[in-house]
Structures are given as C-alpha cells and as structure tokens.
Design a protein around this nucleic acid. Structure first.
Lengths: 357, 357
DNA sequence: TTTTAGCACTCGCTCGTCGTTAGTGCTAAT
DNA sequence: ATTAGCACTAACGACGAGCGAGTGCTAAAA
C-alpha cells in the first residue's frame, strides 16, 4: 500500500510528472514520443517506454488498452500531488479576484462560504462546494424569544458552535411577553449545555414546573428545540457551478456524472468525508482511493477547512475530474481559504508550510 | 399564434393524443402503423399518415427526418396538456406517500417546501424543485435583538411576508441589554413598514437622535437591515433529485443538460418565470414556448404555487424532458401542492376545477 | 550495464459500402 | 373519403480496409 517514493529514480519522477501534466492539459493518454519531444529529457522514446513500463508495474500508470499511451492511475496522481507538484504562481488577476471577494463585507458565515465556493468555482473552472461540517454534541448556549402575535412567537437559539437558528412556534393557547420572558429564563437555566440526546424527561418536568405546569407549551417548545438541535449538527453541503462539470469529457457519459450527482444529492458521503478530516491544510481526495467513499470513484475532491477562532467552521473546495489542475487548484484554495479564515478572525499563517495531507 | 383547437377534427385530436402518449411512454418517434395497431382507431395507416401530415402542417407534430415517425412539437404538447389530457388516477401508494409526508410536522416553510419538492421528485421520478418567489417591497414588521456578548448581538427581523431573518451584528463599541432595548424600540418605531429603497437619510438621522448619536452602531445596524431586506426579496430556488435527469435520453448529451444545469445554476430565469405567474393552479411551461426563458429550451417545468393565508408563499414543481408524463405529474403536483397549502392554513379547494393555465 | 534504433505487432478510429428496416408520400382504385 | 400498394428515403448496424499512434522486444551501440 505504501508508495515506494524513495525507490523512484529521479528520471522516473520526471517522467511521471511530465505524463501527469501532459494528461491534465490534454485529457488524452500520453505516449512515449510526446514526452521526448516536449520535455528536457535527453533520452529517447525507447528509454521512456522502458521506464513507463516499470512505472506501470508500480501501479502509477495505466494503459487504457495496448497501443494507447499511458494515463496516470489514482496512485500516480497521489504521488504527483504529494511529492512532485510544483508551486503554482497565481496570476495577478486571480489574486485581485480573491482580494475583491474579501472586500465584500458579509456578516453571515453561510453567505461567506457560499460566495467563497462560487469564487473557487469560477477561478478554477471546476465545480465548487461549501460545507458546514457535521458537529457532534452541539448544545444551546442561549435562548431568546420574540413575540409575533397572541398565538405564535419566534424561538431563537444560539448554539455552542456559534450558529443561530430561529423557528416559528405556534401554540394552542395564548402567549404574551411575560410568559415568553419566563420561558426563556427557564430555558436558559435548565436546557443549556445539553445536546439533543441529553434532554431527558426530568429536564422537561423541571421545565413544566417552572412554567406553572403548562405542558402543552413546554412540549411544543421542547419538540422545536430537539428539532433545531438535530438540524444544527446535521451539516450542510452547497454546490455551485455544477454545469462546469460538463466541459470535461470524463463527465460526458452518464456513468460518472450520475455517480457524482448522486453523491452530491445524498450529501452524507461527502459530508462525512470532509467532516472526518481535521487540520487546516488543503486536502486532496483522489477517486475513492481510501475506499471509504465508493461513490466518487472517478472524481477528485480538493478542499480546505475554514477556521474561525481556532475551530473548524466549514470548508470550501472544488470537485472535478481526476486529471485536475492540481497545482492551480491547491494554490487557489489555499489562498482563498486562508483569506476567508482570516476574514473570520483566524490569525494568518505566515509560513507557507507543506500544504498536503 | 393562437391554436386552431376548434378546427381540429375529433379524429385528429385522437391521433395527436395517441402520438403524444406513445411518445411519452417510449421516447421514440411514433409511426402511423403503431397508431393503427395499438389504438381503437378503425382506419388504416394510410389515413393516419394523411392526418399526421396535416397535423404537421399545423405545427403540432414534427419529423426528426424523412422516414422517421412523428414527434409532438412544443405546440403539440401544449395542446395536449390544455385540452386532451385525461385525469390521472393516483395509485393508493402515491396517495399514501403524500399523506405520510403531511404527517411529518414541520414548522418552517423552508423545510416544508424542501421536503415537498423531494417528495415530488421521488413520486414523479423527475427532478423536483422548490421556490420561494421574489417578493417586491418586503418591509419589516418587527425587530428583536438578543445579546450575545459585549460586542455582538443577534438582530432578528420579522418581515411583512412572514419570513424571519437573523443576523449576527458585531459592533465596535460595547452593547448591553439596555442599549439593545432602546435600539429595538427605536427601530420598531422608525424603521417599520419601509422597504429597502424607502430607507432614507432622514430615517437614519432620526434613529441616531434616538440612540444618543451613536452613529457607529446605527450605521452598522442599518447596513445589516438593508442587507437583510435585500436578501428577503431575493427569492430562492432549491433543486432535488438532479440525478434523475440522467435517466432520460434527452439529457444524455451535454447540450440539453448543460443548458438546464446552467439555468438552475443562475436561478434568476427560473425564479422570474415562476414568480411572474400568479394564481393557484398548476402551471405547465413547455420548452421556451413563450420565448421569455430561452434557456430551458428542451425541458418542461411544471409547478404549483403554494399558498398560505391567501398569499403565494412559494411553489413546488418538477423539471423534466418535454415528453413528460403530464397526466401523472399534474395530478401529483396538484394533490401535493394542495396538501402543503392546506398544511399551511389555506382553505382546501373542494371543486376539482380546471387545473390548466 | 544502459541506452537506443529498428521493427513487427496491436488495437482503436475513421471511412465507405451495403443490406435492412421503419417509416413516409403519392397515386390509383375502392 | 378511405385504403391498398408501391417507390422512395434515411437512419442504423455490420463489415472490412486502411491508417496511425503507440507499444514490446531484440539486437546493436555506448
């Protein structure tokens, strides 16, 4: 399973790199002749062929069929991303576009993530996505309520992860400001710091006692709170620039496209995948190499966590074909994600460290 | 432009109906022989051919090429939907599924619409969508605020269309409950009933006076309010079951699919289209027959407005190929949409009136 | 021992041909 | 007005030839 990175001769690395990059550009299998022509390799096509055969034996290249050129395998891409990739120098235009995004003052995390994923999509020309990860054991830190009319009010919940949710509560009986004040006071005292599973019957009974035994109101409200808590740790996945997928021939057939659309539709696989990875660097998931997510078999996910005050609050990334322009995408996401995190109050990392996982 | 409905002989209608239905089922051009065989038409294929030629001259049928069968044109579908469509009898299973949806108690419009569009998609096997239409001149009917810490609070806005929006407001100076109380009181007094365009400088100045000239706070808040108001009348489009598109051969090529995905991506065309249509019946938009929405040239949109307390608050619908199973889709959406509206407090329409536009 | 030139071979791709087939339009007979 | 019959059309699938890009292997050169 582990890659024999050290074992690879310098020339093999160069050849692999050339093949990956040629294939990223052209999308077609690349042959030995092409390599000799275009690159600074001084050897002949026959030598390249021998090397290519060995690279294939190592599982780094694949042949669609005899007498076609070679295509990088997933392991090949992985090796490329991990060790062969050169820094991509962002163009002034790209930097400007990111900076312009940063100028737009948006106060809501959702909006920022959404916008950022759109920018990621348009800068890289792949499909962009934004994720708010699943959170475990979200609790409520504060309740507020706002009266609408005699039969309904808005319940506002501030969660431990900083999210805010509201819900329209319609009650059978009558409510007024005084009842609401009592309710919020009781909720703040009794039902904070509990996650969805920790709300027990005793909590509810204690609450009822505080609310003069108005069990209808209490039940309605508790149901709402439970619902909101479940919502809060649900995670979210938003996709932008889906139509960009179509320009890549690997998604021209229904097979791959269907798999990917299905995965996006279901959300959970991608959500789990992204939520399961921590850290602040850009991550690259190539195909289903780690076999956990079977569904995005022929696509690559690249994403960068967004952090705020030391916590991961989301992620932005792009989805595209295996032969993704990794250099560019990594640079773009790194910069964009860093800026977004910075915008959210995260200290900027000054050292340009290793960005791979 | 107007269709010569009355002019069509009974037999022509029957033939057109048979062709549309055969083509919906099979997806392929249908020939004269097929009609004579399968249907109760007593005449021969030659007669059918003559009739078909005339129907084609009327613009109701099309020929992909000579020596292929006929395919309904957009006008043909339109005529079919408007006058030839027979009621679809929903199966017990479908009814049960809708009823089950109705049992799920959800309090938020967004969730209900979202869920309903998913059900629409799964019942019809087309792509479902849910829309909250653009609203003009949304105003705020009530403000509330909830303190988070000394530098931030949550601003809650109840809009004239019943929607609720919250925003995290971070201020330079310090805030406390007392300041917030004054702020909300002032806002409720001075900045209600105004839409985004009507907020003038004098409003802001009046507000500043009330807030002891704290122009920083006032400006921050007003910017937020403006943003929220703009958000509120923005409209929303959510799509579910996108992958279902792929099973229809008309979306197998990149062309049509790209157009449709692009339109969904941009949202505004579809939003405008749906927002522009009022009433409570199911609407059918076939291709870009009315030339306003050029982009969904080869798809059909069917949607039903969702009403609550006499107002249109959203719409659910499906997107699919031109040869959509109209009978089924219309029945499903009519029933589903009616139920959702009912759930939202709209009186149930008892008379099963004409459901076409 | 490594590299390279040369060569036979493979296999997909593109044409053109050809027969088949489903469907048409037209005409003449009913 | 309808229909049977017939000639015609165009898509479709199979077949085969030619092409070309690319390979693997071998034997010679470095």
């Amino acid at each position: 399973m582990s890659l024999p990175i050290g074992e690879l001769s310098e020339r093999k690395k160069l050849i692999l790199k050339a093949i990956v990059e040629a294939h990223i550009r052209g999308g077609e299998p690349v042959g030995s002749k092409y390599i000799t022509e275009s690159k600074q390799l001084t050897c002949s096509s026959a030598t390249i062929r021998n090397e290519m055969a060995e690279l294939e034996a190592l599982g780094l290249l694949e042949q669609p069929h005899t007498s076609a050129g070679r295509v990088p395998s997933k392991r090949g891409y992985r090796l490329y991303v991990d060790t062969l990739l050169e820094e991509y120098a962002m163009t002034a235009k790209e930097i400007a576009q990111i900076n312009q995004l940063m100028k737009i003052k948006m106060s809501e995390l959702d909006q920022i993530l959404d916008k950022a994923s759109k920018v990621a999509s348009s800068l890289t020309n792949y499909t962009g996505f934004a994720i708010k990860p699943r959170a475990h054991a979200v609790t409520v830190t504060k309740y507020e309520a706002a009266l609408i009319d005699a039969h309904s009010f808005i319940l506002i919940v501030v969660a431990s992860n900083g999210a805010v949710k509201t819900r329209n509560v319609i009650v059978e009986g009558e409510v007024d400001d005084k009842i609401l004040a009592r309710l919020t006071a009781a909720l703040n005292e009794l039902v904070t710091g509990l996650d969805a599973e920790q709300i027990s019957l005793s909590t509810i009974i204690a609450l009822e006692n505080r609310m003069s035994g108005d069990s209808v109101l209490v039940n309605t409200v508790m149901k709402c709170i439970y619902e909101m808590l479940s919502d809060l740790d649900g995670g979210e996945l938003k996709v932008s620039g889906l139509d960009r997928l179509l320009q890549y021939p690997e998604f021209a057939d229904t097979e791959n496209l269907g798999e990917l659309l299905g995965a996006i539709e279901r959300k959970d696989e991608i959500l789990d995948l992204v939520s399961g990875i921590d850290g602040e660097d850009v991550n690259v998931v190539i195909g289903s190499e780690d076999c956990s997510v079977k569904v995005i078999n022929n696509s690559t996910l690249v994403f960068k966590p967004i952090r705020s005050h030391g916590k991961t609050v989301g992620a932005i990334g792009v989805i595209g074909p295996l032969r993704m322009d990794y250099a560019r995408v990594l640079a773009t996401l790194d910069s964009l994600g860093g800026n977004v995190s910075h915008l959210l109050g995260e200290p900027k990392v000054s050292d340009k460290g290793d960005k791979h996982d």
